[in-house]
Amino acid sequence: MSNQIYSVQLIIVSLDIAGQRIDNFLFTQLKGVPKSMIYRILRQGLVRVNKKRVRPKYKLINRDSIRVPRIRMEPKDRGLSSDKIDQVKILLVEKSIIYEDEYILILNKPAGIAVHGGSGLSFGLIEILRASRPKEYFLELVHRLDRCTSGLLLVAKKRSSLRDLHEQLREKRIKKYYLALVKGQWPLGATMVNGPLLNNFRREGQRTSRVCKEGKISKTLFKVQEFYAQKATLIQVRPITGRMHQIRVHACHIGHPVALDNLYGDSVFNEYVKGLGLKRLFLHASTLYFTHPNTRKVMRIEAPIDRKLEDFLMILRQL
């Protein structure tokens, strides 16, 4: 395998790039180059902006001139590329795209795929996308989904789109709805759970959250969709805030844990649904409302639950 070489680059900053930190820009521009190497060339003054040294936190301005030096890496230093990723995963991710234009991309994420690498994973969905689309200079997650959760995931294809959508998230103008199967009969009507969440507790090697008065304000709205023989309830969920594992912790907190939740769930209920054929956490991001970052049109995107979950609901209806 030959060495990977980046030639000298001269880049003029456009409005779409302006406002981004130079180190973050280089991470996306020099795909596969270790972060340690990028910080080293910045520290040594080899990257010049308007012919001057800059610190990693320097924020780019429209029409800035960036000179990136020639970079050569040995084969062992090469980053993630499409030939290192299981082609089945690439096809699975590409097939899961349900909407795309030049500003955004929306996927119906399969359960079992992490949204990004880390915590023992060499790559996740966003890394798979970047590797399979080497000509896309910008692909960033707007929000996240747990690895075991399926459903709608929004990706920005421009820095301006990411800024706009993050602002919508902060202002709670993006609405996300989930479908979840929970233990027992949920009370009729809508239920607002307001339980402050404190996270970073370790359990079975995983980060977890719990309801605690010292935690951050956390609100989730639950609404009944269908009952199943007093054993389980299908509910629609709208998280008002966006804390780690919020839906799962709030459901458990009021005595109705999500089916096959191995972290917060009920072991007896989990064995019951396993015996009926459920093989994964029953939590799916089904509907997304947001304003398009360019057209300003209000978008409503839906992703139905997959065939296996739908078949499992049919089993419950027949009990």
Rank of each mutant, 00 (worst) to 15 (best):
L309S: 00
Y289P: 01
G45W: 12
T149W: 04
E226M: 03
G112V: 02
L125H: 04
A259P: 01
F227E: 12
K216Q: 13
K52P: 00
Q44C: 07
G277F: 01
I11L: 09
V258M: 03
S119C: 07
G124S: 03
I85F: 13
K308V: 05
P239L: 10
A111H: 10
G117W: 06
L281M: 10
Y177Q: 05
K279Q: 11
L283M: 11
K274G: 06
I305P: 00
R48G: 01
C148N: 08
H116G: 00
K175H: 12
E302S: 14
Y99S: 09
V115H: 02
I85V: 15
L129G: 10
L179A: 02
I247E: 07
L60M: 13
P56C: 07
H250L: 11
T287G: 01
V211N: 04
E94L: 12
K183A: 11
S150C: 02
S286F: 12
C148E: 03
Y6V: 12
D101R: 14
H166L: 15
V182P: 00
I305S: 02
L309H: 01
N24W: 07
L198P: 00
R159L: 01
K57T: 08
S82D: 09
S2K: 15
Y272H: 10
H253C: 12
I38T: 08
M37Y: 13
I104Y: 06
K95A: 15
S286D: 06
D23E: 03
S132V: 07
Q168S: 08
Y177W: 05
K57F: 06
G19M: 03
E204W: 13
D306P: 07
K308A: 14
I247K: 10
A111G: 09
M73K: 14
G255Q: 10
R280I: 11
D86E: 15
V273Y: 02
